[in-house]
Design a protein around this nucleic acid. Structure first.
Length: 499
RNA sequence: GGCGCCGUACCCAAGUGGUUAAGGGGAGAGUCUGCAAAACUUUUAUUCAGCAGUUCGAAUCUGCUCGGCGCCUCCA
């Protein structure tokens, strides 16, 4: 690998090995990332998988690709038992409406609108690249109906009294993505829940459900009803990115049935490969266990950022600290470590900003050259299957480099360092704070809450120190610490900050 | 039952045929400091779950054993 190499390697779930991405069009990378079903706030596990797509897009962009990125919002059709091909069970949105949290909404439309908006806010907080389009399933019903009509016309789908189904026997490759090729594994869990005796094969999946009682329904050639969950992604990916896309990303759980079904219906629609590469993010665990509400180890992005005061950059740092190919064990410790690093970033950046105003004394570019090399190493790591662990190590190396030479880095050198750090930031996205639009309050928070009382104590301590009354100085420090602040003495004076 | 993953220091973790086996946390030492804290410098795995094999060469490939886990079942 050398610095002019712009190839990107990823682990492709279809080929089940690491491969180099050959884009369909030179210099353009199309990425479709499966977004959330908006029936609740997104949690950190959702975000980890969205972050994978984001990192791929960032890496490609840093390498000079034009990355075309689309990420959907599922706001209809995702049933609670979509696993089974029959798509029976309750609509997730309808179920959410009936739940306690759902009481404040007039209807499912309002509910999905609300959670979709929250999802976008949370994505932005975590500095996830804004997609070109965030298509919603409900805004693409006509496209889905047309796709179903074509599938029926071409003999890939059939109609029963209850639904329109995709006929998996017409697509011999069904199962190629998930490895669920045996009849046994296809049938295993379908048997118990067959609701439609007119189905050809129990594993045939629904493209359209006839249901004139559903809370969200549309009129179709097959009467009132709603689309199946899998079709929306096929239709929207093709609409915005073309019949074949380069990379399709999502959580590992989507591999089957969701992505398997997408492949089948898309490839039957167009006769072309749907996605050349499949990128699946492994699950996130919390303290070694699966994250679930019942275990009480369930974290939403909003809760951590807004209620627990976690810097969104620290959360982002933590969530990407282990490559997407490995399960990630989220712990409080990781978040604490990440927060410390972010704080350090800020300190270094502030100091650099101050130093830009000083006159540069030397023409020595050693540090800059080292930083340049570290950046190219980080980019190489990202090209190599999004190895965030190494990329982060290189980033920390850069900060260490600057930190140990900070007094010598002045003027144009300081400016050049900041420019380089911005390159690291465009790759990894957690170094510089996002420009806040007034919702974030952490800055004022810390300054506001340093009350007059504390400032008074601080002054008293400084005076005590001047008079070499260290016993008094220490007792004042203890007092301040009891109030939840720690003292930082610098050559320029003393300040406090929250623990 | 089927498919798949993982086991690297006290902890997290990168590394997938030849490297001094990254990086972070923790712990120890030093610089600075009245003392702390922070920061900086530095030390911390002759060894990669075990055994056998392939190879000039293995953490990395193959086989077996032991241990942990995921998916196929709500999920990103």
């Amino acid at each position: 690998m050398n610095s002019s190499d712009t190839s990107i390697k990823i682990y492709d779930s279809l080929q089940k090995k690491e491969v180099e991405i050959k884009t369909l069009q030179e210099g353009i990378l199309t990425v479709y990332s499966c977004g959330p079903t908006v029936y609740n706030y997104v949690h950190i596990g959702n975000m980890r998988s969205f972050l994978t797509a984001d990192l791929l897009v960032r890496t490609a962009t840093c390498l000079g690709y034009k990355a075309l990125f689309v990420s959907n919002i599922t706001d209809v059709g995702h049933l609670t038992t979509d696993d089974v091909a029959d798509s029976c069970g309750e609509d997730k949105l309808a179920k959410a409406l009936k739940s306690k949290e759902g009481e404040c909404f007039q209807n499912v439309w309002e509910l999905s609108e609300y959670y979709a908006e929250c999802y976008i806010q949370d994505s932005e907080a975590l500095n996830i690249t804004t997609p070109l389009v965030r298509p919603k399933a409900t805004q693409h019903i006509q496209e889905q109906i047309r796709a179903i009509e074509k599938l029926i016309e071409d003999g890939f789908a059939y109609v029963t009294d209850n639904a329109v189904y995709f006929d998996i026997s017409k697509f011999p490759e069904y199962g190629k993505l998930s490895g669920n090729v045996s009849q046994d594994s296809l049938l295993r869990h379908v048997r118990e829940v067959v609701k439609d005796s007119d189905k050809n094969h129990p594993a045939d999946f629904a493209l359209w459900k006839k249901d004139d009682n559903h809370l969200m329904q549309w009129y179709s050639p097959w009467g009132w009803g709603f689309p199946g969950w899998h079709l929306e992604c096929s239709v929207m990916a093709m609409k915005y990115l073309g019949e074949t896309i380069d990379v399709h990303a999502g959580g590992e759980d989507l591999l089957f049935p969701h992505h398997e079904c997408e492949v089948a219906q898309s490839e039957c629609l167009t006769g072309k490969t749907f996605a050349n590469y499949w990128l699946h993010t492994r699950f996130l665990q919390v303290d070694g266990e699966k994250m679930s509400k019942s275990k009480g180890n369930f974290f939403t992005v909003r809760d951590l950022i807004h209620n627990q005061g976690i810097d969104p950059r620290a959360l982002r740092y933590a969530l990407v600290s282990t490559p997407y190919t490995k399960p990630f064990n989220f712990t409080k410790q990781i978040l604490v470590d990440a927060s410390k690093k972010i704080k350090r970033f800020d300190e270094v950046i502030n100091k650099l900003n101050e130093n830009t105003r000083l006159k540069s004394e030397s023409e020595d570019n050693t540090v800059l050259n080292i930083l340049d090399k570290l950046y190219s190493d980080a980019l190489d790591a990202m090209r190599n299957n999004l190895n965030t662990s190494v990329a982060i190590a290189k980033t920390l190396g850069a900060f260490k480099q600057i930190g140990s030479n900070i007094e010598e880095i002045k003027g144009s050198n300081a400016t050049a360092c900041l420019t380089l750090l911005k390159k690291f930031d465009s790759l990894l996205g957690f170094i510089f704070p996002k420009m806040e639009t007034g919702t974030e309050k952490s800055d004022e928070d810390s300054s506001c809450q340093i009350s007059d009382e504390i400032n008074h104590l601080l002054t008293q301590r400084i005076n005590a120190k001047k008079e070499k009354d260290y016993a008094l100085a220490d007792s004042i420090r203890n007092k301040i610490q009891e109030m939840g602040y720690k003292i930082i003495d610098t050559p320029e004076g003393s300040t406090v900050e929250r623990f």
